[in-house]
Design a protein around this nucleic acid. Sequence first.
DNA 1: AATGAATGAGCTTTCATTCAT
DNA 2: TATGAATGAAAGCTCATTCAT
Lengths: 220, 220, 220, 220
Amino acid sequence: MPPISKAQEAPTARSLHSGVGLEAVSGDAKITRRSHNRLPRLLDEAARVFALRGFVAASVREIVEPVGMLPGSLYYHFETKEDLLVAVYREGVRRLSVKVDDATLQLREPWARLEAACVAHLSALLDRTDYSRVVIRIRPDDAPLVAAELTMLRDSYEQRFVALIDELPLPRSVERRDLRLMLMGSLNWSQTWFREDGALSPEEIARRFVRLLKTSLLEP
Amino acid sequence: MPPISKAQEAPTARSLHSGVGLEAVSGDAKITRRSHNRLPRLLDEAARVFALRGFVAASVREIVEPVGMLPGSLYYHFETKEDLLVAVYREGVRRLSVKVDDATLQLREPWARLEAACVAHLSALLDRTDYSRVVIRIRPDDAPLVAAELTMLRDSYEQRFVALIDELPLPRSVERRDLRLMLMGSLNWSQTWFREDGALSPEEIARRFVRLLKTSLLEP
Amino acid sequence: MPPISKAQEAPTARSLHSGVGLEAVSGDAKITRRSHNRLPRLLDEAARVFALRGFVAASVREIVEPVGMLPGSLYYHFETKEDLLVAVYREGVRRLSVKVDDATLQLREPWARLEAACVAHLSALLDRTDYSRVVIRIRPDDAPLVAAELTMLRDSYEQRFVALIDELPLPRSVERRDLRLMLMGSLNWSQTWFREDGALSPEEIARRFVRLLKTSLLEP
Amino acid sequence: MPPISKAQEAPTARSLHSGVGLEAVSGDAKITRRSHNRLPRLLDEAARVFALRGFVAASVREIVEPVGMLPGSLYYHFETKEDLLVAVYREGVRRLSVKVDDATLQLREPWARLEAACVAHLSALLDRTDYSRVVIRIRPDDAPLVAAELTMLRDSYEQRFVALIDELPLPRSVERRDLRLMLMGSLNWSQTWFREDGALSPEEIARRFVRLLKTSLLEP
DNA sequence: AATGAATGAGCTTTCATTCAT
DNA sequence: TATGAATGAAAGCTCATTCAT
């Protein structure tokens, strides 16, 4: 497999390594003894380090070492560090999309659907092992050479929320775009203050934020 | 003036280069007899570059060059790049605080006070020339050696919002902390999507967000 | 066919991929039953890239890619990049020799023979598709491990010019070695300045250089 | 002193370190004890390594080490390895020019002037310690980013020979451009075959080449 | 109050090459 | 007759920082 080039095609629905939402590739032992196909592990590590440090501060060495690779070996799989980011980001978007789609699929009531989507979004976002964190943490212009691509990917995901908010029955005075930006902003920003040992779970936070928005804060 | 050391004490209220909110320090000539004090310009540039690139990607060279200094000269003023960040961050917090205090000072009605604070907060945050942007853009753990200090500074500022929200008359079911995190999160995140050429001004955005929160979204 | 090793013997007269002077090997199908022998194409590319970039700057990747091979595959055919150079160089010398021999074969008059040899030499040297360019472009000590071998190959070719110059009837004062070094130097150096779109053809250049040497430049 | 940038101005006549033709900077001890101003030594080493290995094969590490510098320190003085080459090349051209000018200055007779120029040219070219070797050894397109600049420098030097040949009284049939290309080609190419322990000195070689050209080779 | 000249560590990337399959 | 996946070394270069002057 040659390096994944910048000119690479749009991802197929079932891209990257195996299934739907496997975070860490475990139980792969049966495939080969000497376990070559470290690419999935490489992506896992990249996701971890990008989410932890940001793009610029993430060093190729730090990504590659836990996989037992040498820095140069990365470049068999990806042409640049930026391209690696794109791969991780793309997978992050894919997983987020799958989770949100799965969560909303069975529901009909618009507010319930939005709430479920927010719960799925926030759970992914705050899960330490998830590629999705990268999608929120990394600003496209941290990696100028692929900024446009990242933005497109992010937008494609956010369309889901555009649609979900379009479904809501709302007072005419409400701008749906404001609503989306406010809601998603508050969810996304939680990455900066959320502590795993806090009192509230991601799910509970998401639910509360939606309720705060939905209901009136003016006294009874 | 010796380098500002890590062991330095908490800042006095009137810290840094005098004046209340001067962005570019001109007319400072009277302060020192002869020297064309370049430290203020240095801080301005640092604010600009930290806000633009983030802490890690900001290079000392890029900060120092527009001031007409050499990289090594920075170290007369600051012991480390981290210390420079602290100085800028501290000034950002100071300016934010001044703006929010000024905006709320004359108002009595709690919701009006909160709205005014949000307008001030967001205007600062989205103003390209403002130190305040650094306070929102930089995550404390981007600079681990001074992370604790940055967090303290930020917390000290956010106390204002804790207080403002405490004043609000609210239904008993509402958790004030959630409210604050949601509101500030949505404001802060706007740094990610705000474009100066967009339809809405920062002030208008802030007002709309507050109104969305305050009122009910359930149909009439 | 195992890799061509460093310990390999001197080349037979009819070395490499058959044929006399075929640049791109087509119609070789009868030689091996099924395989679409890519080794000739590999050598063609190597010649092109070595001539274009020099030995050090020529990367295995650049050579191998247009052939549709992967870098590792080179090493089925050659033990090292140096060995590949030797193969190309050897073929370059062979083709040069054939051309010079063919050109001089029919001629008897010593100056005519020398001129014909120079024309053949220079045409090959300046022909973009020819292995011969490598022989002139690459300095043996660019590839220290095989420098001696390259030097031997080059010397074997230059013997032809030693012989041709020995045939010339010359004033006793003339050192034949000087004459050869001067003549060949001026021809070889033309690789540096020759442009295909220039006014003069390689043949014409060679003829003029010989004439300049032969005749007196002192006024009539 | 900031790095010498690509946009750097045309060199002044007395560029680089001191005097006219100092090859190795010795006797500098009096200037500073800890001898900073290693830039001259850096250039000397660069000239040596570029001449020895060519541009591509010359590693920054090899250049810098004998000077007692670290690789990164080069970049205080030059923005890129290419820029270092330009500096060396420019100095090579300057020294060649000075030598040729000095050699021809006192002479009036055209052939004598040309011969003196060739002697100067070849002595420089074959002198192991001379920057001039770089000018002949390095092909501009070995360093594509500065190729145009190198070509300009080389052309500016070769103008001297254009002029010297223009002065010659020649039979009308002789193309002066051919004459120049032939003469200089044969001189320049001597870099590939000249051995210091050979029988002939550079001076003697140059003189013989000129004589070969000048006189008739047809029998008496 | 700063510069000139560098350091030392680290950076991303490229290279020729290896070897099990 | 190759490939897939990598290695190990080195490359050019950038970084924050140092320190004598």
